[in-house]
Design a protein around this nucleic acid. Sequence first.
RNA 1: GCGGGAGUGGCGGAACUGGCAGACGCGCAAGACUUAGGAUCUUGUGGCCGAAAGGCCGUGCAGGUUCAAUUCCUGUCUCCCGCACCA
Length: 849
Amino acid sequence: MADYNPQEIEAKWQKRWAEARVFETEADPSKPKYYTLEMLPYPSGTMHMGHMRNYAIGDVVARVKRMRGFNVLHPMGWDAFGLPAENAAIKNNTHPRVWTNNNIAEFQRTLRRFGFSYDWRREISTCEPEYYRWNQWFFLRMLEKGLAYRKKSRVNWCPKCCTVLANEQVVNGGHCWRHEDTLVEARDLEQWFLKTTAYADQLVDDLKELEGTWPERVITMQRNWIGRSQGARVKFAVADLRAVPSIEIFTTRIDTIYGATAIILAPTHPLVAKLLEGAPARAESETYLAQMKQSSVKTEDLATAEKVGFFTGRHATNPFNKEKIPIWVGNFVLMEYGTGAIMAVPAHDQRDFEFCRKYGLPVRVVIQPTMGEPLVEDNMTAAFDQHEHGKLVNSGPFDGLAPDEAIVKMTAHAEKKGFGKGEVVYRLRDWGISRQRYWGTPIPVIYCPEHGLQPVPDKDLPVLLPANPIFLVGEQAAAPVDVQTGMAASPLATPEFVNTTCPKCGGPARRETDTMDTFVDSSWYFYRYCDPHNSKAPFDPATVAYWFPIDQYIGGITHAILHLLYSRFWCKVMRDLGLVKHNEPIARLFTQGMVQKGGVAMSKSKGNVVGAIDMAEKYGVDTGRLYTLFAAPPEKDLEWSEESIEGSWRFLNRVFRLVDKHATAIRGAKNWNFDAKNMSDKERDLVRVTYQTMTRVTQDFEKRWHFNSAIAQIMELTNEIYLAEPLENGVRPEIRKEVLQILTLLLAPMTPHIAEEMWEMLGNDDGLWNAPWPVLADQQLELAKDDQVEIPVQVNGKVRTTLKVPAGVTEAEVVAKAKADPAVARHIEGKRIIKVIYVPNKLLNLVVK
RNA sequence: GCGGGAGUGGCGGAACUGGCAGACGCGCAAGACUUAGGAUCUUGUGGCCGAAAGGCCGUGCAGGUUCAAUUCCUGUCUCCCGCACCA
C-alpha cells in the first residue's frame, strides 16, 4: 500500500523521459507528421496557472497524437526581445540580457517541472545573434525586393515607451497598447516600413483557406483590419481658384453622387493651405484649422467627438451634374484613408447628415426606398443608408437604377469621361518596424555620405547589438537628446556601434540605430524550430516542407490581429522568395480562454496570480493540469477556484488507490484475450462501460476538444469500478487488468506522470510512452454493445416511465410493454392513441386524444 | 454604429445530428468506518405541492414550427470581446 506522492512520481518519470529521449523528434518522411505548438512566451516574471492552461492544452494534443502514431514536433522557445527587459534593466541597473536570461531560466524550470513534452533541443531564444541574424537576413531580402523601405512619416509615438508604435499597437482610440492610460502622440520621423499592403489582397483572399479551421472571429477581425473596399476616385474641378485645379475624393457610393452638397477635406489635407490662400475669411479659417489639428490626436474618443468644420470660401464642380458645391474642412475626415477628401451626401450617409444639418448645408435625396414612405428632405431625422432596397432619383440619366447597378454604370461613365476611376482601398497600412530602443534586432543598414543608403552585406551578418547601450536613467526619459530632431537619441548611438565603413567605398559611414519591432521575431520563429541550429540559412527548405504547415497552433485571442497577420505576411514573402511552398503557415488555430481569478485575467499587475510552482508543490503538476482541463471547456475563460481544485486532487488519489489495491494481484496476469465465453455479469458490465468510455473519450479528444467532458467520462468510469468493488469477487485478474490499463491510458495525455506510475504498477516495464492509444478490436466492439437498453416512454411528449428492454426489440413489443405499464396506462385510459412515434432503442412517444 | 460570442441549479459546467434537461465536479446534508476526522466509502441534493404514490413548473424574455425544442425559426432584453467618424 502506497500513497500517491506526486512530487516523487513526477521527478521519477521526467528523468526517465529525458533519459529515453522520448520527445526528441526528427523529420522522417516515412511517418505521418504532426506539428503542434503553443505561442512562444515572453519571459517576464514568474509563470502562473494562466500560462499553464495554454501549455496543458497543447500537451494533451501532442501526447494524444504521439500515442496515435504521429511523428510529433512540439517545440518551445522564448520571445526574448522587448521593452520590459529594457525598462527592468534601467530600473535595476543591470543589462537586459541578464534580466531576460534569468527569466528564461525561471520559465524553463517551470515548464520542465510541469513535464510538458517538448523537444528541448530545439529551444530558441530570439535575442540570440544566431536567431536575430536571420531577421536581418530577411530584412535585406525584403529591401532587395522593395518590400522594406524608408520614408518620413507621421508616426505614433508613445511618450512612455519613447518609441514609435505600429498602427496595430495603438488601441482604444489612440492609446499605447502597453500603456493603456497613455495617449499616443503624432510625430514626423524617418521610419522603416515593411510593405504589408503589397499583400493586402492575398491576406484577405487566403482567409478563405482558413475558414472552418480558424476561429471565425479571428478571420473576421483580420478581414476588418485589412478593410478592403471597392469604390471610386472622382475628380471635382475647383471652380474659383487656379492654384488648385481639382480635388480628388474617394467614395464607395458613387451612385449617390447627385446628392453631394459639399466637398469636405481632412484638416491635414495638403491642399487646404492653398485653398485658403487669398480666401475671404482666411485668418479665421486658419484659427479653426489649428484647433482641429491639435485636438484631432488628443481627443479621447474620436468616434463620438462632435463634428466640426468650416467653409473654405471655395467651390468645386460636381462632374456629373456640373453643380457648384462648397468646399469645407471637417474634423471627421481622415487623411489616412482614401484620398483624405470626401463628397458629403447628407441624405444617404449618417456622418454627412449630422455635419450638414449642423452647418445648414442642403440635403438632397437621390435614392428612394422601394418600400414604405418616400423620403422628404425636410422631415428626415437620419440618413437613409441601406442601399439594398432603393432606386435612384434626381440623378439625370441614371434615374430608376438600383444602386448596385448604378455603381457599375456611373464608375464606367466617370472612367470614360476621364474624371474618375474605380479603385480598391484598404484600411491596412504598411508595417512600421522602426523602434528607437536597444533590446531588439539592429536594422542592417549603413549610411554613407558618398553612396547613401547601403545594405549590410550578408557576409557581415549579424550586426551585433553593442554590448553597452546608452541607457535612459530614472523614471522618465532623461535620455540623451538628438540635437536635430529634439527627440531621444537611440540607445544604440554609441560611437563604437555607429561608426563604421561604407560597404561600397570603405569610407567612414554611420550605422542605422533603429531596431526592429519584436513582432518581426515572432513572425517566423516556428520555421526556425524545424531546423534550429542552421548557421547557413534561416532553415533548410526541405525540412520545413516536411513539417509545415503547422497542424495545430494554440494561443490567446489577443494575438488575433498583430502576430497572426504578420506571420501570414511573412509566410507569403518567404513563399515568393522560394523558401516555402505553402500560402498559409497555420492550418488550424485554437484560441484558448483566459484563467481568471475574481473575474479578471490572472496577471502579476492585478495581483491575482496562482503561481505555477506553488501549485506544483502543493498538489503536484498532474492535479494542476487536470484541473485546468476539467474546470471549463478550453475555449472559455476559466474562473480559478481553490475549492474546486480539491476535486481533481481527490480524483487522482482515488484512481491511484484503486490501481494500488489491485496491482499486486494482477501484475502478473497475462493480457486478456477478449474471450466473451464464461464471463460473469459483473465482468460484462465492467468491460462494457470501460469500452464505451474509451470510445467517448477518444471522440472528445479528437473531434471536439471537450477535455472537460472527457475527464467527466473517466471519472464516471472510476465511479463504476468503485461500485463494482470488491472486484476480486467475480472479476478475473486479466479482466481487472484490462479495465485498469485502459483507465490509465485514457488519463495519460492529461496526467502523464501518475499514468506512467500506474502503468508500471500494473506490470508494464516498457514505459507508457511506448504504448499506443487504445483502439477497440472487433471482439471488443462486440463487448461494448449494450444488450439492454432503457427506453423512456412518453405520453403526449411527457415522460411517464422508462422501460428496460433487450437491445433490438421490436416496436410492437415496446408498445405492448408500455401499454401494460401502470404509469402509462393511467394516462392513456379512456383515450385514443392517434399516433405512435418510436425511435429504435431511443424513445417511445404515444400521442393520445 | 458594424462584426463576433454567451445567457442552463447555490457555483464551474454537461446534453453529439431535435429525442429522459442538469452528466461530471465543487458546495451542502445524512449515514458507515473510526479513539478521532478537515481522510475514506455510501446515499441524497433544480423549484413548488404532497406523508407517500405522484403531479405541476423549469435552460434570459415573448411568440412560432414539431408527437417532441437548451437545440430550429421570428421578435426582444442583458452581458462580454473586437473594430470604430474607413466615406
